[in-house]
């Protein structure tokens, strides 16, 4: 079944050995996201450089493997992107996990995060997978206003 491939070794590596789970010292933007009923809590931070690109992204918090691995993959993907590019990727990701975007070539832009494609068969887990991405989108739309995002 599809769920088996979701918890792949590559996916689990992001859970067991996250690359971007730390506090970002000189963040320019910080935003919180929560899934109250799941208990997923995420604080996302990015640093925009002078040329307006995301130089670094990181997160702290806790939650299920899907929400945490998703945040790790997203943080990796966003390095070097402009806010507009980042927002477009957030839309693409949402399309993938809700099943409306199936174009493999387009989904390739999500790099490793395309591993989460199987969430489209697991409606109960969509809000776990999208937490980091929605938090980033809210952050970029709010332009640095340190609010909170909930996917519920």
């Amino acid at each position: 079944m599809e769920v088996a491939s979701l918890y792949s070794e590559q996916f689990m590596d992001h859970v067991a050995h996250p690359d971007y789970k730390y506090e970002l010292e000189d963040a320019t933007h910080v935003h919180d996201g929560v899934n109250p009923s799941c208990g997923d809590e995420l604080r996302l931070a990015i640093r925009l450089n002078d040329s307006g690109r995301i130089e670094e992204a990181s997160y702290t918090g806790h939650g299920c493997a899907v929400s945490m691995a998703s945040a790790d993959m997203m943080s990796d993907l966003m390095v070097g992107k402009t806010p507009q590019e980042a927002l477009a990727l957030c839309d693409l990701f949402k399309g993938m996990i809700t099943g409306s975007e199936k174009d493999e070539a387009r989904l390739a832009q999500l790099d490793e995060a395309a591993l989460l494609k199987d969430v489209s068969h697991m409606p109960a887990r969509v809000k776990c997978a999208e937490l980091a991405w929605r938090t980033l989108a809210e952050m970029l739309k709010d332009e640095g206003d340190s609010g909170a995002t909930t996917t519920e």
Binding site: M1, V3, Y7, C38, A65, V66, A124
Partner: peptide
């Protein structure tokens, strides 16, 4: 160390 939602998803498979 495993979130219950992950437990339920893997059991579902």
């Amino acid at each position: 160390g495993v979130h219950p939602h992950d437990v339920a998803s893997i059991l579902d498979m």
